[in-house]
């Protein structure tokens, strides 16, 4: 029993981080219908910033979100203005964005590899290898639970950022505009939303979330440039599962699958963790092609 709780806790902690990663992707898809295959490449690029900030300057990776997020925000806006503005309104916009971001992902991967080489990196702040130990409480005599500090803090930061994002979307003027554009772009235009500006801001927010995810990745998971494909496959599986563009769906999907993969890792072996996501994706396509929280809309 204790082991089950232990595995579930680890899964939830991971799921929290996955949720943050998937939230960024979902935002970009929801507002602009951009399926950003470069999202994970952006995450890895951000992980390099945090890694070197820690390695060279001793800045804590968790703290590095303070500058990584703004950097990635403006980077995202620049990418949007330089590339996506050009294809707005083109036929087959969805397909175009996939191919375009595929190209961007390849570029980022190549550049990172060129500059930083392909070796594994992982920041090692003090808490990365420490755990909180829980005993007593409801646990059977002698049993203890480990809560790894690094993952706990990462998850906490994810929650803070996700709640912040939720409040921003819910209560701010720009948040209203973002939600409106997501639901009905034409209508948003009619009530006076500058949808281009909103799109640029949303894409910036999406990449800023990638930035925060990267800061967490820098000490949670070993990374190297090519790794982003593996991540993007997992994250995209989450986004499809959640119903393409449903923030709630992506977050719930991330938590559920975080726990599920944690059990798969525990029972079968660590290499099979990602399989949970792919299998879940195919399963959901079989049963409910529009995803858990999606509506049936022709794309």
């Amino acid at each position: 029993m204790t082991n089950v709780i232990q595995v579930a806790i680890l899964g939830l902690l991971l799921g929290g981080v996955y949720a943050l990663m998937a939230a960024g992707l979902t935002l970009a898809f929801g507002v602009m219908r951009i399926v950003n295959l470069a999202h994970a490449a952006f995450i890895i690029a951000s992980a390099y910033i945090s890694f070197f900030a820690f390695d060279k300057l001793g800045i804590d990776p968790l703290l590095s979100v303070v500058f990584v997020m703004p950097i990635m925000f403006f980077f995202g806006i620049a990418v949007y203005q330089a590339l996506f503005r050009r294809i707005e309104g083109s036929a087959k916009f969805g397909e175009m964005t996939v191919l375009l971001t595929f190209g961007i992902a390849i570029m980022v991967e190549g550049l990172l590899g060129f500059v930083f080489t392909g070796i594994y990196r992982k920041a090692q702040p003090g808490y990365a290898n420490e755990s909180f130990i829980v005993d007593g409480l409801f646990l059977p005599e002698g049993d203890i639970l480990f809560i790894p500090k690094g993952q706990f803090f990462a998850s906490l930061l994810s929650i803070v950022l996700l709640v912040g994002l939720w409040a921003f979307l819910r209560y701010s003027q720009t948040g209203y505009a973002i939600r409106a554009t997501t639901q009905n772009r034409a209508a948003a235009e009619i009530v006076g939303v500058n949808v281009r500006r909103v799109s640029a801001i949303s894409f910036g927010l999406s990449t800023a979330l990638a930035g925060a995810s990267g800061a967490l990745m820098s000490y949670l998971f070993p990374f190297f440039p090519f790794r982003h494909w593996q991540w993007v496959a997992v994250l995209l599986a989450l986004v499809v599962l959640g119903g393409m563009g449903s923030m709630k769906g992506a977050v719930i999907g991330a938590l559920v699958l975080g726990v599920a993969s944690s059990f798969v890792v525990d029972q079968i072996g660590p290499t099979w963790g990602p399989m949970t996501f792919y299998l879940a994706l195919f399963l959901i396509l079989l049963i409910r092609p529009q995803g858990l929280f999606g509506k049936e809309v022709p794309v």
């Binding site: 003027q173 209203y176 505009a177 939600r179 409106a180 639901q183 009905n184 034409a186 209508a187 948003a188 009619i190 009530v191 006076g192 939303v193």
Partner: peptide
Amino acid sequence: CFVPQDQALFPEMSVRENLIMGAYL
């Protein structure tokens, strides 16, 4: 101000939120 044929509402926003969106500017 233009009200198009399909009304162009925000389906997942409440009536009140839709009205507030009307005063977006």
